[in-house]
Design a protein around this nucleic acid. Structure first.
Lengths: 237, 237
DNA sequence: TTTACTAGGATTGTCGACAATCCTCACGGA
DNA sequence: TCCGTGAGGATTGTCGACAATCCTAGTAAA
């Protein structure tokens, strides 16, 4: 197969660094609020400060880093209201993705999602407590990807990273593995049946479940908590 | 008033450059497909290439610029499928924003949106053909901002820029000013009435209208056209 | 005519160094 | 004890220069 003759024009250094930083942020290796020292990170990545700064600017525009001029870059810290905001935004994106799947190539989407579900099933038995949440998020990533929308994929990427940050921060690797597998199974079943309305309802309920597990009291359906619209410095990005 | 004592810790240079580039891209001053020469732009902005590159990396992660290693940065060019993708994504975001408005502080949102609508009305009589579309987009920006969701605002920003790019590229400063004002008026009326379901229906129809005006044949409700999920180089960003 | 190869020029990628700003903390006065 | 002041150190912001890569012509061979 000549399917992977891409290595020509390989990834830019800034991209590589940006991805590694993203990973570190979402796994909690770089905890919320941490200041990112340029000199230290540059030494760590074995590059000069130029490419490093470029990578960090990307994360700033993605909202994962907060920039304070002449003071440094910090990992965003998630306030209580952010949990709601993240899940509400995810609900919007994934709902749109589901609609496009149902009105597009539903079959191939079902195939991909079934595969992701299988991984969840095996992850449910994995001794690693992170295996299940991780496969869970991969399912949702696959869902959005199956929509075929470049923009939904891009927007979902940041949101899923922030979701991982929430999970890491709250240490809620909850145990109800079977329930969550069941919820995803239902969604796929509804897709197979071609019942768009039911897919959307299930998806909504699924997100609702997630948020009540993480932040009881902040329901998706009962009005948002005080989530400040005003951003910090450098919002114009 | 001490309301604007912010200038402390002023905007970073990269932010300023990024915003100016965004403006240039969305107005069409930098047309889709244009290569951005670093040396030339640096001279134009009177800064060195360092801050300029940082700014451009931001636009890359926002999806406004496409990076090809050792070849340069190019303004993204919008393919036919992108028009659909943009409006479908906007529909998702603005729907979510409307929901949060209806379940939150509806009154203040109505106040802000009424103001935006007034501007549309005066813009309808403006000889400048760009005045109406511009105020139209400001209305939608205000809608998302009124949701109070940081993430919806961030995601909508890029989408609205891309919308402007579409309008500039297609030169569709259509004339039906009264119709569009009417559609927005209806939305506000439904908000005042507290009828969430109707708000969502009107918003959906509004987006549907917009897309059929811009790209007849690619309806929001009749299955997406072939929009490639695979991105170009440097997707991992 | 077409193809392969080789300078030449131009652009991007990376680096190290200097300037500007900020935070900390000790010092002195009220 | 509290507040204002001023080094000192550390960090960020910016710049200019060098190295690596790519595109374009031009030349020569098949």
């Amino acid at each position: 197969m000549l399917s992977d003759i891409e290595p020509v024009n390989r990834e830019s250094t800034a991209s590589i660094i940006a991805r590694q930083l993203r990973d570190a942020i979402m796994t909690g290796a770089l905890q919320p609020g941490t200041q990112l020292g340029e000199a230290e990170l540059a030494a760590r990545f074995e590059v000069s400060r130029g490419p490093l700064r470029e990578a960090m600017q990307r994360l700033v525009s993605e909202g994962l880093l907060r920039s304070e001029r002449h003071r440094g870059l910090f990992v965003i810290d998630l306030e209580p209201g952010d949990v709601y905001d993240i899940y509400a935004s995810r609900a919007a994106i994934e709902r749109a993705a589901a609609i496009r799947i149902m009105r597009g190539d539903t079959d191939s989407a079902v195939a991909v999602l079934s595969e992701a579900l299988d991984e969840m099933v095996s992850a449910a038995d994995d001794p690693d407590p992170n295996a299940l949440p991780e496969s869970d998020l991969r399912f949702h990533e696959a869902l959005v990807r199956a929509s075929g929308s470049r923009r939904l994929v891009r927007m979902a990427r940041t949101l899923l990273i922030e979701t991982r940050m929430c999970l890491a921060a709250l240490q809620r690797t909850d145990q109800h593995g079977d329930d969550r597998v069941a919820e995803h199974t239902e969604i796929i079943e509804a897709m197979k049946a071609g019942d768009e309305q039911r897919v959307l309802e299930l998806l909504d309920a699924h997100m609702e479940d997630a948020i009540t597990r993480l932040a009881p009291g902040s329901s998706l359906h009962s009005g948002p908590p005080p989530s400040v619209p005003a951003d910090g410095v450098d919002i114009a990005g």
